[in-house]
Write a protein that binds this DNA or RNA. Structure first.
Lengths: 200, 200
DNA sequence: TGACAAAACGGAACACTGCTCCGTATATTA
DNA sequence: TAATATACGGAGCAGTGTTCCGTTTTGTCA
């Protein structure tokens, strides 16, 4: 019955993989999540492997680049964030309010992940894919909210979702816990800057 | 005559240093500047040493941390930027215009230095001093411009220069040359966000 | 069940980088 | 010129990313 037939190629077969491989993949995700919390997303690979009780080879086999691992760990939350856009658009008082709420969501996500915002913009070796995944996944949602706010006349047109997302991500970079620097305040400033001068 | 007496301690004696030491220090600055352009401010120390034709020990003796070297290379430009504040305040049409011009100056400086903005916020080992120097040097100037604009009623009070500077610095982080991301546009948005809703 | 092939594992080993340490070379002074 | 303080050079250690291959485990089939 568990015929491992795989007609096409597709992104996520997960069929035909050996039981130990599946087990280890899960173990690695759990270990990585834990290590990310304590040591940040750029923790030594060895540390994650040790935590999971596997060898270095295993980690690289499952997650060829660091970005693959980070994406896997945070995939759920990113997808959730992407999905929240339309919902907020429906529920909020105005498109701009929805945009603001959504941005808050995104910022909350970033600031609670030690070093993630940094990694997102890092020009380091294994992080491009991370950058790409986040942007690919979230820019469309952001664009939808942005467009709605433009259509409603609440904000000036001309700003691209890609640029805004990167800007917000950038503002979230920093040693966490500095009371003199709160990304939220600056992000708020950025959003205010988007507004139409006069409500027409 | 060149009595090497040094009464106190002070920051910059530079007296009594051997001729070769002085020469090497200069050579290192030149080499570092060149390497920073091609390989970024986080180029391998070995590369800089090789370029200068000196050993590793020499570089560490003159510049104990990476930040010391980076600061030394860019000191002139940073001081210049700090000094430009008052001048702009005098010459511009309004304090806000002066602030904008000054920010432009700062952004221009950052975006033309490969990886400098990154390093400024890096939580890496040898970069804290860099962060500190830039902020110590530029925050007062920024605060002066900010206060003037507040006093003139052009912008809302409540924003701190430190936070603004860090935000601007953060926005300048990124792989340079991405046509879809222009720090200047976002910085402009930030400045617009600072303005008073109604010119009172 | 037992044997065999494919899949997966583990970790030694290599490369690269930051940084230190100390024997050697050079400048300065008397 | 001799003596001494300074400065130099680079080998060497430590931490990390990444690869490679001999060994082990799993799944299959007779």
């Amino acid at each position: 019955m568990p015929t491992p037939r795989r007609s096409g190629e597709g992104p996520a077969p997960a069929r035909g993989k050996r039981a130990d491989a599946l087990r280890n993949q899960q173990t690695l995700l759990t270990a990585a999540a834990a290590v990310f919390v304590t040591s940040g997303v750029d923790a030594p690979i060895r540390e994650i492997a040790a935590r999971a009780g596997v060898g270095m080879g295993t980690i690289y086999r499952h997650f060829p680049t660091r970005a693959d691992l980070v994406v896997a760990v945070y995939r759920h939350q990113v997808e959730e964030c992407a999905a929240a856009g339309p919902r907020l658009l429906d529920g909020a008082d105005s498109p701009f309010a929805a945009l603001r709420q959504w941005v808050d969501l995104f910022v909350d996500f970033l600031v609670t992940k030690h070093g993630l915002a940094n990694a997102l913009q890092s020009d380091g070796s294994g992080f491009e894919a991370l950058h790409t995944y986040f942007l690919d996944r979230l820019v469309p949602t952001c664009a939808q909210l942005l467009d709605a706010a433009v259509d409603a006349g609440e904000i000036r047109p001309g700003t691209h979702a890609y640029e805004l997302m990167r800007g917000i991500g950038n503002l979230c970079i920093g040693r966490d816990g500095d009371p003199r620097y709160d990304p939220r305040r600056l992000v708020e400033l950025l959003l205010i800057g988007l507004r139409r001068p006069q409500p027409s």
